[in-house]
Write a protein that binds this DNA or RNA. Structure first.
Length: 272
DNA sequence: GACGCGTGGGG
DNA sequence: TCCCCAAGCGT
């Protein structure tokens, strides 16, 4: 849930999930579509699909207990090098090289003296983080948490609070006079993209309690002649996008291909 | 290595 | 209002 998503937005959903599914077996026992629906508006809904798949793998291959080694965690769906390291470190107290966006930024400034880390994680960054990591398990866990928090609360991406920084005196970036970034991060396009249409379609499917016929997506709301139970609002939002027919086609096909939707009785629904 | 993938709070 | 960007991953 925390992958690319702020903690404050995750917390309420996370509480809800743990109440409903306290164990991997609980989640694995439900249809994948329930995970997607309960994901709500956290974003990147395929994470929900992968979390469900991970729960299934944990039940099948690990006796229902979340594995505690980086290699085993890495083999789970949706778990990459960061998540594997974070779980092994913070849940199991292991010494792991945790490198998230916060740690990358802190290292970039404090050690490398540049405003921003490289666009993508590099081998050099991993080596640096590994070299800085304290030797014993307990201290390394505290180190990882501390550097992450420093990046999240003080050494922020925009308007870093350098005056309040506990290590400002040893910051290479400050010492260099706060040089600007050497490149301009390109933002993700949103308006008019397939992605936006996908999101709007999925918002409809999350609220639908029966398969949604293709007509519902393709036609103007006024032409439908009736308001489908519960999905009127997201359906109106989808039509307001005024997307090209082929764009809607791609969105629907993409959702099917990704397993986020399936056909049933001639309509689209979340996977059962 | 580059790209596609959601959403919403804050500057 | 617009834009940035947030505990990344898989292809």
């Amino acid at each position: 849930m925390l992958q690319q998503t702020p903690v404050v937005r995750v917390l309420p959903v996370w509480h809800e999930w743990l109440k409903r599914w306290p164990t991997p077996a609980g989640l694995a026992g439900e249809p994948a579509g329930e995970a997607v629906r309960s994901w709500g508006r956290l974003g990147y809904p395929r994470r929900a699909l992968r979390l469900h798949a991970a729960a299934t793998a944990i039940v099948q291959d690990h006796g229902g207990r979340v594995p505690d080694t980086h290699a085993e965690l890495l083999a789970l769906p949706g778990v990459g090098s960061y998540t594997a390291a974070a779980v092994a470190a913070f849940a199991y107290g292991r010494r792991e090289t945790v490198v998230d966006t916060n740690i990358r930024r802190v290292h970039a400034r404090l050690v490398s003296g540049v405003a921003l880390p490289a666009p993508a994680l590099t081998a050099a960054e991993m080596r640096l983080a590994a070299a800085l990591l304290p030797d014993d398990d307990e201290t390394s866990v505290r180190w990882n948490a501390a550097v992450m928090e420093l990046g999240a609360l003080v050494c922020t991406a925009r308007a870093p609070k350098c005056a309040a920084c506990p290590v400002k005196d040893s910051c290479a970036w400050l010492a260099a006079g706060e040089p600007p970034p050497s490149y301009v991060p390109k933002g993700q396009a949103w308006h008019g993209t397939d992605r936006q249409v996908r999101g709007a379609v999925l918002a409809v499917l999350r609220l639908a309690d029966s398969p949604v016929p293709p007509d519902m997506f393709e036609r103007e709301p006024a032409d439908l002649g009736f308001a489908p139970e519960g999905i009127g609002v997201p359906l109106a939002a989808l039509h307001r996008l005024n997307s090209a027919p082929e764009q809607l086609e791609r969105a629907l096909a993409g959702l099917l291909a990704d397993g986020l939707a399936e056909m049933h009785d001639g309509g689209y629904r979340l996977p059962a």
